[in-house]
Design a binder for these strands. Sequence first.
DNA 1: CGTTTACACGAAATCGGTTTCGAATAGATT
DNA 2: AATCTATTCGAAACCGATTTCGTGTAAACG
Lengths: 333, 333
Amino acid sequence: MVTIQEISRITNFAPSTVSKALNGYPEISQKTREKILKVANELNYFPNATAKSLVKKKSNTIGVVFEVEYGLNNLFFSTILEAFRKQVEIKGYDILLLSNNTDNGLNYLNHCRSKQVDGVLIVSKGSNKDAINELLESELPVLSFDPEEEMKNSIYSESYFAIKKACRYLYNLGHKKIAFIQGDLTNYIGKTRYNSYMDFMIEIGNEPIVIKGLNNSLYTYEEGYKTMDMILQQFGLPDAVCSSSDLMALGAIAYLKDQGYKIPDDVSVIGFDDIKMCEIVHPKLSTIRQDYELIGKKACETIISMIENKITEFDPVIIDSELVIRDSCKRRR
Amino acid sequence: MVTIQEISRITNFAPSTVSKALNGYPEISQKTREKILKVANELNYFPNATAKSLVKKKSNTIGVVFEVEYGLNNLFFSTILEAFRKQVEIKGYDILLLSNNTDNGLNYLNHCRSKQVDGVLIVSKGSNKDAINELLESELPVLSFDPEEEMKNSIYSESYFAIKKACRYLYNLGHKKIAFIQGDLTNYIGKTRYNSYMDFMIEIGNEPIVIKGLNNSLYTYEEGYKTMDMILQQFGLPDAVCSSSDLMALGAIAYLKDQGYKIPDDVSVIGFDDIKMCEIVHPKLSTIRQDYELIGKKACETIISMIENKITEFDPVIIDSELVIRDSCKRRR
DNA sequence: CGTTTACACGAAATCGGTTTCGAATAGATT
DNA sequence: AATCTATTCGAAACCGATTTCGTGTAAACG
């Protein structure tokens, strides 16, 4: 690689002068700047980002935390990451996929510090909540898409009114027995959706149809399938199902189909997320759309603003979500 | 962050001694090593990876190149990346998502050099083939999952015999009019699948049913949908469809369903990839499975061996693929 | 013409590590 | 006791940038 010292030797200017010329310092005359730039271009010079990071204490890199099990291999999370990446790239940052290597003691936080990561986006977190909390409480700018109890430093889709809107929609189609498939009740989003459903059932004065004590922490197809099984056993066939994720909704539909029911003729089902699959399956899944592009964009803006203004705490960013009506819900006969 | 100099001050050993002690050099006595390690642990010392990279000229980071359009937002590619990541993590490397910023002249290669990336995995490439070729011809260890004409430095699933097996399977079910949905004919994989299909049709002495001149470069659902439309218009209804990707197969199925046909009763369809969705859709899609875990593992092994042994060229690594029979194909009535 | 001021550039320190090579010490050898 | 050897450690250079501060020169001023 071409270094500043090489340009220095060739142009007979000191390394410091070369550096200043390349970085647009005003104290360099037009003439010498041109000479230096000319040589730099001829040699195809690009600064060594490592050296730069070392002295500037800034790497132009944003770390991303991902659960191992259902990480990238999950359209929902990977869609967010992709949207985020697109924005981040524009701003001149790179994305480093972080690991939490407990073997060598290099947990998330130490890893971030070691690699001089400027900020961190937590897309999804697995079992290692301790390592995550260390991150959140550190001096680093951290943004979480998967907030815990307290909601600080987080970005997420509005869920409370969204679930109510979905339930209201089902109710207005004539459905009374509306079942709910919950997600991860240990995090804020999962809890909010659950509470919203419970509140709605109280409003309309119906008994909630939900499996108590169940925690579908991964929001997967398989969990949806099993939950639907339990619902049928415990409550019999509901009129409609409201699910905390599209994948679980699809799992529920699969179970119902396996039992010989028709969707939406026998049961209406609505999901949450609007992953790309919704339009591919049959019937096309009605759902609540999360605005991935906007989430990615806002997440990027927020985290870069945190980095540049050195803030480590801010109010949650809440992105509107929208009811998308397709073919999986039908008026009750 | 705690530095070596701090430990040096506290222990009264020179920085060089501290460094050696921490890195297990034999010339350090047991006594001083213990003293130094004790202090390092107490202060929760971790080496600054940036500084280390600078002097060692090795960052323990592997760059990953992804197409922007259909990058992470594609279960196929993200599954590979996830498998790769899992392996790479174990070996102590991080993954940096690379961008090709032509604005500031920081193309892939310069970006890699600047960030001191040790090796590169090309998962999918978009339109900027020049930037990719620069990478391939550089001094960096590069591994491509999406090889061009020449197949050097690549890893991919066996496709030629796989497509033949799929076609043979359809043929043995009694189908004569077997249509083919091609993928990207400008790259090796796409071409191989196409050629395999064409050879098979010659073998069985039937006319190929394929849209000439069509290039489905993104292997998407929408492309499959459109292609199926064109096939019906140009050739009428085939007995079976062999697709170069699952997503295109699903698109084709959707089109056929929209036209009122039943799958697999009227048309048998087989895909390629075995993305997770295959088991979720109805009917469950028969397909050719790519062994993602093995691809990830081999890719990791290969690239790390390239890095450690400083080889930049090697023969292609070919991963076996397997026919998976589900519900989307049926014996011809 | 002497002094001030602005401008342009360079020397040197720094970031946090690694590595080479030389020196001091302790122990072994004759 | 003198010499040799092995062991252990430290000084200093280095990786490739940035940044502070000082200096020399030319222009501007009285």
